[in-house]
Write a protein that binds this DNA or RNA. Structure first.
Lengths: 349, 349
DNA sequence: CAAGGTAATGTAACCGGTTGCATAAAAAGT
DNA sequence: ACTTTTTATGCAACCGGTTACATTACCTTG
């Protein structure tokens, strides 16, 4: 059907072994022979059949990113896809390809993504911590199958993983508010069952402690996910006797809803109420005023995960690696009080 | 190393051919033998080696989505990724896998994505029209390599392609404004070098013509891409003697910038100026007022492309298919004048 | 009961590369 | 000039499935 190594060998008057060696730039080949073979390849329009190559080497040079995205909207998808881009960017120049495996669509056909492992379709796996389970980890470790987890796992897993430094994120956002003379800072997160939310809360508490502020349980809320949750929560805060003067939200949309509520109630921002959010999502930059957020470099997260995985593939080791990535704060209008609005030291209560 | 078909054959006391037949559910196998073989597989923990299978069949059951995304921001990535999701959703239940090939990262290693074709790494390709060129098409057609283009190509290409109905998008958005009693409707697009922008303009002109309105060249602008472009353009419009009373923007961010400008100049929206945009992007829903947009179902676009490609892979044909997808308008606050605000027929000029 | 047909299984070639080992030719050492 | 080493190439097995063809056993049917 198409041109094979045999055709090239015949045309060049050498053995298939020699052609193969030319393909792989073996230095055992004399320049003249190499030249001859290369000419034959060019004339015949030869391309090595990658499937055969994979078969001989027993690897595919493909790694899979497993995701568990339900029907994506423009809202919920940027996260994985930036990670995806980072992975791609790292592995492609190294001759690897990226396969996407959505656990939700894959599951329809039975075994889910573990099929990829057992059938040797891919050389390694990057998967979110949400898909981790003991059973699977054991299987993969029994096979010495390389994999990297995105997101810090709960205690009891000794695996390769990468995550952003969520504690640091909680800490710098809170510290920033403290430095802008906010006093009663609330903290609103998603579910505290998720380790990353626990870490963010830890950071918040650490920042308070470092500045001699004691946490108020009434100011710590969990379970906010939507614009509407944010609106409701902020309304509730503002109806209180002793409301917070600033809020850290771990979700951008929640912060957006809260901002609307604060504006609807006529609060001046950031003078009367400060807001810091997480994940530098488009709306954060476009809202009025633009929202201060912790910027999480997900492209870099992908790069780190990919780098760790390729290392594991190329020289497997028994010691596992972990990597925590720094985050940075993007200061915008919802938190930075103008200098003149800060009380001078002697004016403070 | 791992369990192969030979091990299973030996354990079950049959030949490898028999095991292979059991694997493929051949009906030539007696139930007792099948049972025996399946037991052996279970006991040994056998999984077929997919690389070997691919080698025998000379296919990979992988299709590639080629993209040409530069460093993605949360702004620019939703488009491809919704298409990606659609493809995935369609192909996974059918036993195919999705590979992502970013032309930009791939190119670092030389030949770019055409490598995928010649090395037989994938069974088919879905690629954006922006990456199309005659040279490539000829090569792929010479090899009978299945591929589908996303986006209508310029004249002169007879290939499989899918696209959203851009003309319809231009038409329904304009018609909607006309039906809301807007009279001087401007049209602002990206570059008219892009066919999809030409089609959108066609739709706009068609809608005007159908309602007996004649186009005014001063109201047709091209080359707007950013929030800032939108702001500048809207400012310019509002400074005119005879400004438009509504604008169709083919880009959401441009519309967002324009909206800010209109608000900054104190115009009431939609009473004094109407705005319709394209692509139902997050900011469209969250802005004040929320922006009316044409909703483009990119997930469905992916599904259609994937469906066309698998069909081509499974039974290659020489006749090419094209598919144009409908769009729908999401009516929001920037265009819908309240009934009472519309002039009654006898009040019109 | 022999001939013909069918169902179940085995044998071995094949898919297209890679690579250990053998070998031949050239270069170096004594 | 003769052995030893180095360099270049070929032979053939191998990776793990699939499948055309051969073979055997059993089942019909005249």
């Amino acid at each position: 059907m198409s041109v094979t190594i045999k055709d090239v060998a015949k045309a060049a008057g050498v053995s298939t072994a020699t052609v193969s060696r030319v393909l792989n730039n073996s230095k055992l080949i004399s320049p003249q022979t190499a030249e001859k073979v290369r000419n034959a390849m060019r004339e015949l329009g030869y391309f090595p059949n990658n499937i055969a190559r994979s078969f001989a080497y027993q690897n595919t040079c493909i790694i899979a990113l497993v995701v568990d995205i339900e029907e994506p909207t423009a809202f919920n998808n940027p996260y994985f896809y930036q990670i995806q881009y980072g992975i791609e960017k790292y592995i492609c120049p190294k001759g690897y390809y990226l396969m996407i495996a959505n656990e939700n669509t894959l599951n329809h056909s039975g075994t889910g993504f573990s099929q990829l492992v057992f059938e040797k379709r891919v050389d390694g796996l990057i998967l979110p911590v949400s898909l981790l389970n003991k059973h699977l980890v054991k299987k993969m470790e029994d096979q010495n199958f390389p994999f990297v987890i995105i997101g810090e796992p709960e205690n009891g897993y000794d695996t390769n993983w990468v995550d952003v430094n969520n504690k640091m994120a909680g800490e710098i956002s809170t510290t920033h508010l403290i430095e802008n003379q906010f006093q009663r800072i609330a903290f609103v997160s998603g579910s505290q069952k998720d380790l990353f939310n626990k870490r963010r809360l830890e950071g918040y508490l650490t920042a308070l402690a470092k500045h001699g502020l004691s946490p108020d349980p009434d100011l710590i809320k969990e379970g906010a996910f939507s614009k509407e949750d944010g609106y409701a929560l902020m309304s509730e805060f503002m109806g209180r006797q002793n409301p917070p003067d600033a809020v850290v939200f771990t979700d951008n949309l929640v912060a957006f809803g809260a901002l609307s509520a604060a504006k609807a109630y006529g609060r001046r921002i950031p003078d009367e109420i400060g807001i810091v959010s997480f994940d530098n999502f488009p709306v954060a930059e476009l809202s009025e005023p633009p929202i201060t957020t912790v910027d999480i470099d997900l492209i870099n997260l992908g790069i780190q995960a990919a780098s760790m995985l390729l290392q594991e593939i190329q020289l497997p080791s028994t010691t596992k690696q972990q990597s925590l990535l720094s985050v940075r704060l993007i200061k915008r209008g919802t938190s930075e009080r103008a200098r003149r609005e800060q009380p001078a030291p002697w004016e403070r209560s």
